[in-house]
Amino acid sequence: MKKGASTLAMLLTFISAIGQNAEMADQFRSSGKIYVVVGVVVLIFAVLFAYLLYMDYRLRKIEKEVDEK
């Protein structure tokens, strides 16, 4: 039964893939607002990476201090 269900799901996905009229976020893209999302994501990751680099820098300072001792 389970096997049959997953085979059916598989088949449906495959058939619908040929259909190719799936709903996409076209309107959101044409109105340009997807760039807002990209902007938010980029900002968040920029902060995260800045923090990662800062940790790297702090660690290097500690390493230097220990080396000098």
């Binding site: 893939a17 799936a22 709903e23 996409m24 990209v38």
Partner: peptide, 12 residues
């Protein structure tokens, strides 16, 4: 997030 992807049902 920006490139064109294949339009597939269910997945969208």
């Amino acid at each position: 997030l920006l490139i064109d992807v294949p339009a597939l049902n269910i997945l969208n």
